[in-house]
Each structure stands twice: as structure tokens, then as C-alpha cells.
Design a protein around this nucleic acid. Structure first.
Lengths: 354, 354
DNA sequence: GATAGATGAGAAAACCTTTTCTCACTTGAC
DNA sequence: GTCAAGTGAGAAAAGGTTTTCTCATCTATC
């Protein structure tokens, strides 16, 4: 190998980039440059202790000039706070985790807190490794998140001596859990269909063993009528196709509004309706669930759907774990966050002036 | 607020969970329990220094018994290694970042390295904040990743005095950059179509100002013939529809094989063909690009497509940044990783015994 | 002009590890 | 019986920061 073409991040190499300095700039350098002791420098920079205002300003100015940044490791060692939290997830596809993550990061970046992302799949051993690595690194707290409200992560987070907050996954009793209000979200969808004048509303949704499926179905029956049909199936487009085939094959009444359990099913339903020459939204209105942009926006017509506000959920989870880390009291329990209806064109109504 | 229902992670509260201990278990506790000095304890646990093998074993056993885990902050302060790296991305949707992330984490978790995920959108100020936060936390290295090969992240990573590796985004000269070999991927697709006996192959792809679009188009022309048509457009399903409409509207020859620039376009193309009564794969074979499971697998028929092996790309990027962090020499330059053809049913061939 | 109080700033300990240096003791050889 | 070499283990420093405690100086009061 030609030596000239190698990168090495050895100390000799770094000398060039840092202008001859040996390592990082420490508070010792600040103190030396200002001609004071390190304790005074520290107090000046942290706005603590007693000292003349002109000294304080001068130290701050010098610190800024030479580009001093405190070493978070040293600080954390003393303060027992690392300004770091861990995000544990089993949602490898990221459809639910990413918005949650974005919200957490968004809420915490101003507080100087960084986030470790740990994807643990369904592997308890991997989960254990990640949890231990995080604890070794003295995380101030952990947020556990998943892809399903009624499942736990395959890892034990009790007795951890750092605070744990659950987001979009089932939490342990006595802890804080954030989840979407699926019943309210379902009502939002149904009431929208009703408001648009739809009378024969059907519900095509996912597997009945999902908690959120049952909760949405219950809310649907309460608003649309207990006798209305609910079709349970898979979370897939092809189930949407099949459900339409089933509803339109018999002699029974044909729905004029369909509330779907997620956007993929809705997409399948809409495609199937079009293939049968049924117009959406003129003949039938369709509502989805999830507001998964990539599906909802590319559907023809674009999908009116329920957004679970996962980013907001992440934001609140982040602020809560921060509060716990700082010792502020937090009431345990399940917090249901309201969903929001995103109106596009699959129901009509956007052009009806409603 | 009812006091009994509050969570507080105060010290008093923690006492219960940790069995009366004041804080974390430190090496002092190990030394005390073993009746030795902390230096001996340290040397025993790290397999360094001189001591009797029975002492070493005894210390290890006691440490395990009382659940000692070394404080990574203290260790990092001394060793100047935090066993932490930062992942910077502007791909908020996560389609490209998540597989890369999974690969990085996968490669590094065995080495005890954790990953900070920093989503910076296109905001330079946010990027700067995240970079500074990471540097304060003494990350051993940074991996920059994006959603486009020919764009840089909106943040300056030169002169950082920690190693930087680029993955799926344009890197600075003199650094290591990992990217997919799009030309090879395109050849894989075209050659597969040719092998299946397709003679009139078209290429429907994304915007021409994307580097990877041009690279794939060039490779396509080299294999399929310089005169073959290339249709540039958007990265969307609707462009797939439109492209089919355009090709089938005129009197010109109709393709019997279509190589699409991504899976969404392919999905649009297939849907459009079906709407025209053209059978896939019997009449026309379609290949996609990206192997985006959620699209590729739900397409009817399921999509044969090119996988960029982003997880492997992430793995290599992770190992490389680790090597640099440890001072091992690494040759700079662009590393193109080969793509892989994933055969499903949209081309035929899987049932032709090829 | 002496003393109490206020004010500015530094010394040192603490956080938890790792590493180097030193010391005491044992063993073998002469 | 002395000396060299080898062996086991502890003391202390280092890493960068914050915090508490102490000290010295200055101002105001009687």
C-alpha cells in the first residue's frame, strides 16, 4: 500500500488540522489564556460563584475565541448526567419508530441531549446487549418504542435505576406510557364520513388480535351502528382487494363509505373499486389510517386518512423522560394522544366546501 | 397531584430498586468486597498486570456476583475513546438510512460501540448543533449518510479531528466514501431481461439531474443498445403510469421489457400495463430498483428488482470508521459495493427454470 | 485606626477508571 | 548468607470538569 495515500487519524496526522495543538482544547487552556485559575474559569463559564462581571465576560470571550467546548464525558462523570438517552425499538422498518424518533430528537436537541438508537428486532439477547451498553454509558433515561400497542419489547426494563418511558408499545405498570387514542381517531374518520352524507359505512381492518384493531372497531360500531359489518384480515393491499370482492359479490347492500384499518388496506380497496368501475369518491368514500405519506399521497385519488401524530408523541415522550431524569415528578399511567384527520381527496368533502 | 401516584427517580426512590446501595456499583465496591486495592481489581478485570491466577479469578467472580459494570464515561475520559459514533443523515423518511443504520449497528455492537442518530433534514444550523453535541460527547467517529449519491450534507465535516466516513452521500476528497455500484446494478437488471429473451427493452427512470440516474442510464445503453429509449421523469408511481401511456400511445414499437429507475415507478408501470390489459410478465417483463420491500412485495405480481445492499454498505462503513478511530490505516477513495438482483415474479424467469 | 462584613479568586476534592511506578517479599544461585 | 531476579500487590497520577472550602483583599462602620 502506498503510504502517501493512507488516512490515519493518529496524533501526528491530527496536528495539521488542529493548528499544532496536542489534543482538544480544555478549560486549562482557557484559564491559561485568561491568566486565571481553572476554578475561576469554570465558574465564569457556568455563571456560578462570585466574581467581577468584567472577569466573567473576559473569560467567556476568550473561551469563545479559542473555541473551547467542555468535555461532556468529564462533566457527566461528575454530574451523573450524560445528557444522553437511549431509544430502544423493535420496528426495523421504521414506519412507526422514525416519526417518534424525530419528535424525541426535536424535543431534546435544545437541551443538549443526544439519542442512542438501538434496533433490537425481536431478539432478547440483542436487547440485553444494547441495554447494558446504554447503562454502561450512563444514559439518563430510556424510551422504549415498538410497532404495536399491545406487545412488549423482548427485554426487561424493570429495576433499571434509570427512568423508562414507553411510547407506542405496552409499558410496565407504574410507568408512563404514551399511545395514540385509536378510538378517537376512528370516531374522527367515521364522523367525517357521516358528515359527508354517507349512510352505509363498512370497516375493513387488520387482524382482530391487535388491540388497536379492536379499539377502532368498537368505536366504529358505536358511531356507525352496532350492526354494521367489520371485516378483519391482514394489513395488506391484497386484503383490501379481497374485502371489496367479498362485499360486492353477494346480494347484500353495498357500502357508500369504507373506513380502512390502515393506508395499505385503503389503497387496495381503492384500486379494487376502480377496477370494478366504482368511482372514488363519487360513489364510495374511503378513509385510511396512519397517514403513511408514501402510500397515502401516491394513491389515486390521494387518501384522506387519520394521522396518529407520532412525532408529537415522540416529543412528549422525550420531554417526559427528561423530566424524570431531572428528578421532577411525573404522574404514571397511560396517556392517549389525540389523532388528526388529514383530508385529501378519497372522500370528497374537500371540494364540497365542508 | 396525589403524591402516592407520582414517579420520582430521586435517590430515595432508587434505593428500593438497587437494594439499598447509594449509587452505581463501582470498582471500589469490587475491591472492598474482594479485600484488595482498586488497582489490583482493575488489573484483574482487564487481564493486565501481574498477579496470581487465583486472585484474578476470584476478583472476576466477585465482580460478576455483585453486578459490577465499568463506567464508560470514566473509561472514556482516560482512554480518549468513548465507544460511540455519530450517524448524521438528512433522510428523514428513513428509506435509505434505516438499512444503513441497521448495518452499522450490527457491525459495531459486538465492539461495544453505540450509535447516535442525528436527523438534520436540510437545515445547516441543526446540523451544526448536532455535530457540536457529538463532538462534546467525544464520539470516536462520524458516519454521514444521505438519500442521494450526488449531494452533500448541509454541514461541514472537514477539519473535525475525528474520522468521518461517508455512506450513500457525496464525500469530501481524501476521505472514504461507500456507495452502491449503480452501473453494475443496472447491468444486472438488463442482462436478466436479455437472458429471458426480451428484445425491446425500455428504461423508465427518475430525474436526469440525479447522478445515479445517469449512471444507470449509461449502463443500460451500453448493454441494451445506444439507440434504446430512456424516459426521464419523477420518482413516482404516476410517472410510471404516464410513461406507459406515452410508450403505448404512439405507433412506435412497444417494449417487451421495462427497466425502471425505482420500485415506485415500476409499480406505476405495472398497474398501468394491467389497466391496458397487458399481462406482466407474460407480455412485458418489468424490473425495479431499490428492493423496497413494502412496495416490491405488495406489487401484483411481486417485483423483481435490484437491491443495493445498503445494510452491507452500513456494515462496512461502521467497520471502517472503527478502524480509523483505532488509528489503523485505511485507503481513501470511493468504494462501490455490488448490487444484487432479487428475483420475484414480474419478469417471469422464476418459473422458466432459469 | 481597628474590626466586621463583603468580595474576588484560587486550592483541593470529587467523579471512576486505567496505568505506571514503587515496594515488599520470595526464590534460586553463588 | 548475600545478591540478583522475579513475583504479587498497592500508591499515586492522570483524564477534564464542577463544587466546596479557604484565603486574601477591600470597603464601611464605629
Amino acid at each position: 500500500m502506498r503510504k502517501g495515500f493512507l488516512i490515519a487519524s493518529s496524533m501526528e496526522e491530527r496536528l495539521d488540522t488542529t493548528g499544532g495543538r496536542k489534543g482538544r482544547i480544555t478549560i486549562h487552556d482557557v484559564a491559561a489564556a485568561a491568566g486565571i485559575s481553572i476554578s475561576t474559569a469554570s465558574k465564569a463559564l457556568n455563571d456560578t460563584g462570585r466574581m467581577g462581571p468584567e472577569t466573567r465576560e473576559r473569560v467567556k470571550r476568550i473561551a469563545a475565541e479559542i473555541g473551547y467546548r467542555p468535555n461532556a464525558l468529564a462533566r457527566g462523570l461528575l454530574s451523573k448526567r450524560s445528557f444522553t438517552i437511549g431509544l430502544l425499538t423493535n420496528d426495523t422498518y421504521g414506519r412507526f419508530t422514525l416519526p417518534v424518533m424525530a419528535g424525541i430528537s426535536d424535543a431534546l436537541v435544545d437541551h443538549g441531549v443526544s439519542v442512542f438508537l438501538c434496533a433490537i428486532e425481536e431478539d432478547p439477547a440483542l436487547g440485553q446487549i444494547h441495554v447494558e451498553a446504554m447503562l454502561d454509558k450512563q444514559v439518563d433515561g430510556i424510551i422504549a418504542t415498538g410497532k404495536r400497542l399491545d406487545r412488549r419489547l423482548p427485554v426487561d426494563l424493570s429495576n433499571l435505576n434509570v427512568p423508562v418511558v414507553y411510547a407506542f408499545t405496552e409499558g410496565a405498570p407504574g410507568t408512563v406510557t404514551f399511545r395514540s387514542d385509536d378510538a378517537q381517531g376512528a370516531r374522527l374518520a367515521i364522523e367525517w364520513l357521516v358528515k359527508l352524507g354517507r349512510k352505509r359505512i363498512a370497516h375493513v381492518t387488520g387482524p382482530e388480535n391487535f388491540f388497536s384493531v379492536r379499539e377502532r372497531a368498537d368505536a366504529y360500531r358505536k358511531v356507525a351502528g352496532e350492526e354494521r359489518p367489520v371485516l378483519f384480515g391482514a394489513w395488506s393491499e391484497s386484503w383490501g382487494h379481497e374485502a371489496v370482492a367479498r362485499m360486492w359479490s353477494g346480494n347484500g347492500e353495498k357500502p357508500d363509505g369504507i373506513f380502512c384499518g390502515n393506508d395499505q388496506i385503503a389503497r387496495g380497496v381503492i384500486d379494487a373499486l376502480r377496477e370494478r368501475g366504482i368511482r372514488v369518491p363519487q360513489d364510495v368514500s374511503v378513509v385510511g389510517f396512519d397517514n403513511w405519506e408514501i402510500v397515502a399521497a401516491q394513491t389515486r385519488p390521494p387518501l384522506t386518512t387519520v394521522d396518529m401524530e407520532l412525532k408529537e408523541l415522540g416529543r412528549q415522550a422525550g420531554l417526559t423522560v427528561l423530566a424524570l431524569a431531572e428528578g421532577r415528578p411525573v404522574e404514571p399511567g397511560i396517556r392517549k394522544l389525540p389523532c388528526r384527520l388529514v383530508v385529501r381527496q378519497s372522500c370528497g368533502g374537500d371540494t364540497l366546501g365542508i
